[in-house]
Amino acid sequence: MNATHTLESVGWLCIRNGRLLVVRSVGRDAFYLPGGKIEPGESHKQALVREVREELTVELAPGHLTPAMLVSAPAHGLDDTELHMHCYTGPGHGEPSPAREIQEMAWVDSHTTDRCAPAVVTVLHKLRAQGQCG
């Protein structure tokens, strides 16, 4: 892909029973990782804490977030744009529940990628290769 633009984001890898938590925003047709864009002046961890709180009402502690992988993939729905998503793992406090712009959440594995954005598909394949996800 010869993208003319790049977009940087953060994503939370929440894995339970071999499945990855994904979310779908209102008006979107694909699932994404919980997380999102980094606001000016925010660190990756600060952005992830804010986004996950807003999207799922789950509290993440920045000190307990660990970098897991950097994923590069075509940005879903954006022509000529490549997404660079910094993925983190870490415990969350509270049960995930769709909030604000999140319409739906699901638990997926590498066999259920048909409705996932390209970056999520890449994450799922990497997690499967590491034995963390089905």
Rank of each mutant, 00 (worst) to 15 (best):
M1L: 10
H5M: 14
T6H: 14
T6I: 11
L7Q: 15
L7C: 12
L7G: 03
S9K: 12
C14M: 02
L20G: 10
L20C: 10
R24T: 01
V26Q: 01
A30T: 04
A30Y: 05
L33K: 01
P34I: 01
G35I: 02
G41Q: 10
E42K: 05
E55Y: 02
T57M: 09
V58W: 05
E59P: 01
L60A: 12
P62H: 08
P62S: 12
L65S: 03
P67Q: 06
A68S: 04
L70Y: 00
V71T: 07
A73T: 06
A75M: 14
H76T: 00
G77N: 04
T81G: 09
T81Q: 10
E82H: 09
E82I: 10
L83I: 10
M85C: 13
C87W: 07
C87V: 10
Y88C: 11
T89S: 09
G90L: 08
G92P: 08
G92K: 07
H93N: 13
E95D: 15
R100L: 11
R100T: 09
E101T: 14
M105C: 11
M105V: 09
V108P: 04
D109A: 04
T112K: 13
T113V: 15
T113I: 13
T113F: 06
D114F: 12
R115K: 13
R115D: 11
C116G: 04
C116H: 06
C116Q: 05
C116V: 06
V121D: 10
T122R: 15
K126D: 13
A129I: 00
C133T: 13
C133Y: 02
